[in-house]
């Protein structure tokens, strides 16, 4: 299950954690939560919906300012490393730009835009976030405008 949906977990980590250590922490927490909660999954919702809930809940509710510290158990165990995506071409630069633009959105906007970019329906967004579809539509229009502008600003800035 984790293998199949690892993209979802990695993307939440890229969006909500700012440094490598935080990404690893968050990745680890999400995987632990998924493991712990799997017994309570009754198939009432899609597995991806359930995973989104757990990943976003872990990322949002435990967001606390971290002290910068070197955590040895990560450096000791290379098998836990989440490697940075390598950008090696012009197209990859665009991808980098997209992540930079998204990073400037608020925490909730990031969650909404992530689901939009993953082609999730408003119904599924509502199931995950608990925001009514009406509110989501209004938010989505605003976010699209904001994202367009941010991408423009970022591309001029590079």
């Amino acid at each position: 299950m984790i293998q199949q949906h690892k993209g979802l977990i990695y993307k939440v980590c890229y969006l909500y954690a700012h440094d490598e250590a935080s990404k690893q922490d968050l990745f680890q927490e999400i995987v632990i939560q998924l493991w712990k909660m799997f017994g309570s999954f009754r198939g009432e919702a899609k597995i991806s919906t359930w995973m989104y809930r757990i990943a976003l809940n872990t990322a949002l509710t435990d967001l606390r300012r971290r002290k910068t510290k070197v955590d040895l158990h990560y450096t000791d165990q290379s098998n836990l490393d989440i490697e940075e995506v390598q950008y090696d071409s012009q197209r990859d630069e665009e991808e980098k730009l997209l992540y930079r633009a998204i990073a400037k959105l608020s925490q909730i906007e990031k969650a909404v835009v992530m689901m939009y970019l993953e082609d999730k329906s408003y119904e599924e967004m509502e199931e995950v976030l608990g925001i009514s579809q009406g509110t989501l539509r209004v938010k989505m229009n605003r976010i699209k405008e904001k994202l367009r502008l941010l991408v423009k600003i970022e591309s001029h800035g590079t």
Binding site: M37, R53, L56, N57, L60, A111, G130
Partner: peptide, 14 residues
């Protein structure tokens, strides 16, 4: 702790 609940209701409970 309600990690598998809707994000909004989880935040509210938290």
């Amino acid at each position: 702790e309600c990690a598998s609940c809707e994000v909004k209701s989880n935040l509210s409970v938290r």
